[in-house]
Computed example of a mutant assay.
Amino acid sequence: MRPAPKAKVRKARLLVSKVDPWSVLKMAFLLSVALGIVTVVASVVLWTVLDLTGIFDRINELLRDVAGTESSFDLKELISLGQTASFATIVAVVNVVLLTALSMLSAVLYNISSTLVGGIGVTLTDD
């Protein structure tokens, strides 16, 4: 018995000449929402870790030593968990809007520039 002949690897050279702005908008929106959720969760986790390790108390002690004993400065009141989560949510919403708009603009600019230069060449192979 002869072994089966090995199939020849096929290659296809293609050009990405146009990107659909609507699909880029949808994908960019979903990915930026996911990034926004990660931002909020990471900021809450970071604040919780700083609180559990006693970093806020150490900073308060340091500021009392520097400013004197009459200082009643409390860092937890200034940067509470609620304020941190609110700020992170605002940053996440702004990032969603900006990243979606920039992705859409990038798709439109790519379409304009690909009409001038022909697009990006891609080679696909069959393994």
Rank of each mutant, 00 (worst) to 15 (best):
D20L: 05
L30A: 15
I112Y: 12
V66M: 09
L116P: 00
L78S: 02
S106T: 12
W22I: 09
K18N: 08
V44H: 01
E70G: 10
T48K: 11
A88W: 00
I37R: 14
V93F: 01
D65C: 04
G121W: 08
Q83V: 05
I90G: 06
G82W: 03
R64A: 14
S17A: 13
A42S: 15
T125R: 10
D74V: 12
W22G: 13
S103R: 00
D126C: 05
S86T: 09
L116Q: 10
S71W: 08
I120S: 08
V41Q: 11
G118I: 03
G68T: 03
I79Y: 00
V40D: 00
A28W: 12
I112Q: 10
V24S: 09
A101V: 06
V9M: 14
S72M: 06
P5M: 06
G54Q: 06
I79K: 00
L81R: 10
A42W: 05
T84F: 00
V45N: 06
T89C: 11
S17D: 14
A92I: 08
V24T: 13
L63M: 10
L102R: 07
A12F: 15
R13N: 15
S113Q: 03
S86A: 12
T53R: 02
V49S: 10
R58Q: 12
D65K: 13
S71M: 12
K76E: 02
L116R: 08
D65E: 15
V91C: 00
L99T: 12
G121L: 12
I112P: 02
R58H: 15
A85S: 07
P3H: 14
V19M: 13
L50M: 15
K11C: 07
A67P: 03
S23P: 07
S113C: 05
P21D: 04
E70R: 13
A107S: 11
L15S: 10
S71P: 01
I120E: 05
F56H: 11
L116D: 15
T53L: 06
D20Q: 05
V45Q: 09
F87Y: 02
A92M: 03
L81E: 10
R58L: 14
V45W: 02
L31S: 14
T115M: 13
D20T: 09
V24K: 11
R2W: 07
V91L: 08
S103G: 08
G118E: 04
K18L: 09
I59V: 13
I90P: 00
M27A: 11
V49I: 15
E70K: 12
I37A: 08
T53C: 04
L46I: 09
I55H: 11
L35D: 07
M27K: 15
I120R: 04
A85L: 00
K11Q: 08
T125H: 08
A67W: 07
R2N: 11
T69A: 12
P3T: 12
I59L: 06
L75A: 02
G118C: 01
E77S: 09
Y110T: 03
A34F: 13
T100M: 05
D127Y: 11
T53D: 03
A85Q: 01
V9W: 08
L52D: 11
A88K: 02
D51H: 04
G54I: 00
S23C: 09
R13C: 06
G119V: 06
V9L: 11
V108M: 15
V9H: 13
T53I: 13
T100R: 03
T89S: 03
F73L: 04
L52I: 04
R10F: 03
G82T: 04
D74F: 02
D74E: 12
T48H: 10
